[in-house]
Design a protein around this nucleic acid. Structure first.
Lengths: 200, 200
DNA sequence: AACTTAAGTGAATAATTATTCACTTAAGAA
DNA sequence: TTCTTAAGTGAATAATTATTCACTTAAGTT
């Protein structure tokens, strides 16, 4: 038995599911009341733990918010390029990614709201913000491929990208606010508008 | 001399410019630090008045935020239909409004951020939210005119509207974050993407 | 000029909320 | 079973922040 095992022996282990509960509770609260309306006490009770326990998992509110932000960013990055295969024809691959963006926004709406809300908050550090910006990079590559193949318009990449994403974000946001159901049919309509705009 | 004038005579009048200063200071702070990062003390000092003075103009933080929200909503509604004339050909009229939306987002960016941020906050009352939703009504009428004239696609109005607005919002938001300059040329490119998407 | 009244002030107070801590509980080792 | 250690608790404390208030200033009336 060495120092290492001595150091970590005789331990009541952390319940790893708690982090998940804390995150889930925080997302729910931010969706309902916004980032200005959440307290550590509320997060704790929504996660069904004591306030003190929250501080075993996160040193401070700051750290909790940043950790959750990072988690959300990872979740979105994982979805964006799921099932994308560069060897597919451009439009097919483009649609895969476009649908992934739509999927993330609809199925992880609280994460999207949380990221939007917290981006401007005093909690998120500059480093976290910087990494987030870099997430857009592969999407730039995508539209640049489309331009190179003369399939989509030869406009500024920034314009093409924000155009590609804007409709999705706006649609999902307003759907959730107004209770409008997001159907396959509506998604298809939105894709067509988007594609007709982009195509050369 | 009647009761009315008696009651209101011998008064040091409120400095009406102060409300404006308070609003401007609040918008600036929310843009920089988010709705979670503003305190009455900071608002007061940014507006160069004492904290107590703030409470002469607004009963509470709640009231201040709601009043500013209403002000922002009015400012946006005023711009949206500026110079629009229903007797113009559809595309011409559409472009006038589209450019107005773009103008509001770029020239009153802090207002747009403030409205986005506060919409989900505990400050905004349900009434305020409800009135805000109604603001979209004339824009619905616009896309429905386009559909009736068979100029734009016969898709769901909600889809058409969120599509019309999404690109603008996303573009301006990311421009401001990343420091990308918003030029006439880029605006024109965005309009073309948007129009090509919408047209029948 | 003297008077009245409300604006304006900022330190004091009241609420709210983040964080700590003395204590309890339970997992695993001996 | 006993022992050790960290998780878990929630009331107590520390910070922060909204709101008040006793006081000062200045506009307008007489």
């Amino acid at each position: 038995m060495n120092n290492y095992s001595l150091k970590f022996a005789k331990v009541k282990p952390k319940d790893e599911k708690k982090t998940e509960h804390i995150f889930k509770a925080t997302l729910q609260l931010v969706k309902d009341k916004g980032v200005a309306g959440i307290t550590m006490g509320e997060i704790a009770s929504a996660a069904k733990i004591a306030t003190g326990t929250l501080y075993i998992y996160f040193k401070s509110k700051d750290e909790l918010i940043n950790a959750l932000f990072t988690e959300c960013r990872k979740a979105s990055a994982e979805i964006y390029f799921k099932d994308y295969d560069a060897s597919l024809p451009f439009k097919t691959g483009f649609k895969v990614i476009w649908l992934n963006l739509m999927k993330f926004r609809t199925e992880h709406f609280e994460k999207a709201v949380f990221m939007d809300q917290c981006y401007h908050s005093p909690f998120i550090t500059e480093t976290t913000k910087h990494i987030t910006k870099e997430m857009m990079h592969p999407l730039y590559k995508l539209v640049e491929r489309g331009k190179a193949e003369k399939i989509i318009k030869d406009a500024d990449s920034f314009i093409l990208l924000t155009f590609m994403v804007g409709g999705i974000n706006e649609f999902v946001k307003h759907s959730k606010y107004s209770g409008k159901k997001i159907t396959k049919e509506l998604i298809e309509q939105m894709f067509n508008l988007c594609w007709d705009g982009l195509k050369a």
